[in-house]
Amino acid sequence: MDGQEMARALTRMAHEILEGNKGCQDVALVGIRTGGVFLAQRLQRLIQHVEQTEIGLGELDITLYRDDLAIRKHQPILKKTDIPFHVSGLKIVLVDDVLFTGRTIRAAMDGLMDLGRPMEIQLAVLVDRGHRQLPIRPHYVGKNIPTAQDEIIHVFFEEAGEEDRVAKLSSRRRAS
């Protein structure tokens, strides 16, 4: 998936979010660090461009909610959770780059619930690569990419100093 395909997929997703929610009343985006935040920012721009109104944008770090914290060798360094609005009563669209086992989304939902009681939580992902281990299904998908369990999907972002693209890395050779 190259930069142009990413842009088209995001434009479509922005419209789907608006369609699915009949506008953007009471809708807010929450990106999961780090890739999801870039995507949420882009979706926010696209939606605001179409609707000409502001919509809320938050950033969520799910590290403390991971279910593998106790079994990892090294603690991941935490980033700040920064959600500048009350989530209660809102339709929250969680945004992440790659949907894989679903465990990150489970953690993100717990994290959101600790901040309040959203009216609804929806899920938007750029890539769905399958292999779910939890009963989680996305509402908005940029692209379905079938993968083998041991393959790695990496999304590169302009915001992180790379050229926009989605790459499939084989587990043995970690090069694109």
Binding site: T63, L64, Y65, L69, D110, G111, D114, L115, G116
Partner: peptide, 11 residues
């Protein structure tokens, strides 16, 4: 975390 309404994380 300490500024939240629910001041608790499951870490």
């Amino acid at each position: 975390v300490s500024g939240r309404e629910i001041k608790k994380v499951p870490a």
